[in-house]
Amino acid sequence: MFAYILKRILYAVPILIGVNLITFMLFFMVNSPDDMARAQLGAKQVTPQMIEAWKVDKGYDKPLFLNEKAEGLQQITDTLFVQESLKLFSFDFGYSDANRNIGAEIKTRMGPSLAIALPTFMIALITNISLALLMVLFRGSVLDTSMMIVAVMIMSISGLFYIIAGQVLFSKMWHWVPISGYLSGWEGVKFIILPVLIGVFAGIGSGVRWYRSIFLEQINQDYVRTARAKGLSELKVLFGHVLRNGMLPILTGVVVVIPTLFMGSLIMESFFGIPGLGSYTIDAINAQDFGIVKAMVFLGSVLYIVGLILTDISYTLFDPRVKL
């Protein structure tokens, strides 16, 4: 297994270089270093000297991919892409254009992102699986059909609608929870109830349908018939056999998501005033802060790759037939 993991990590290097290359190309296609300087220095009183000084200070005076003024290998190495990429691969995220240590900022913001993402993920997983099992239990009945219709309706409506409707209903009209805000620790529970509920509800439609299809595939298998033939109740069949055998495809979709939970939710964090990594990324894009954008894209890619490796490892744990 160790050799496999090592191989996967080595495969990740060219992927990350590719992701980085695309990030650099896309970002600088839209924003020039001059534009970035203007965005940081403000629209008033900006002179060419100020822009030049800012670029030198931040290292944006270097060419992007090819330094024609340099010689030999330095033509490649003395460029913005190589210099910045090398730092990223050593997990040195450097400083944002507003002179903040990005690594320290990421550490601080991971907590709030997880405070929302983790309970949402856990509750959604349990709720979706439970509802899917319920639908499978009553498959073919009016209840099953009604739940399917509701699920399609839920997934057809924009998440933004649930956020606004939830805020209006639970906070503005019924005064149950604060509309937005965040506090760490137990004091903050009242702030995360609403975003978590909305996150869970908004994901029910697609989640339930997906898990239902997984369980329906299992329910017609021979082992289920055997279990029934043994005289097991339908509930025992579902929880004892169908759920266990359905875990493998569920794991495929779930484990890969776990590491990316750190990255937070872009819209949810923005609307609920959660100081997480999702809003951090959005703010950086709006402020044309390349330091943060490249760090977050890189981190997102690394976490996704970690998720894929974890998924492979988890296969071996749940299915003894799989060997890495």
Partner: peptide
Amino acid sequence: YSLEKESIPLWNKFLQGY
């Protein structure tokens, strides 16, 4: 000072007296 990026929560909190 609390960060309120979206106008809807900000406006509703004001109406609630917060």
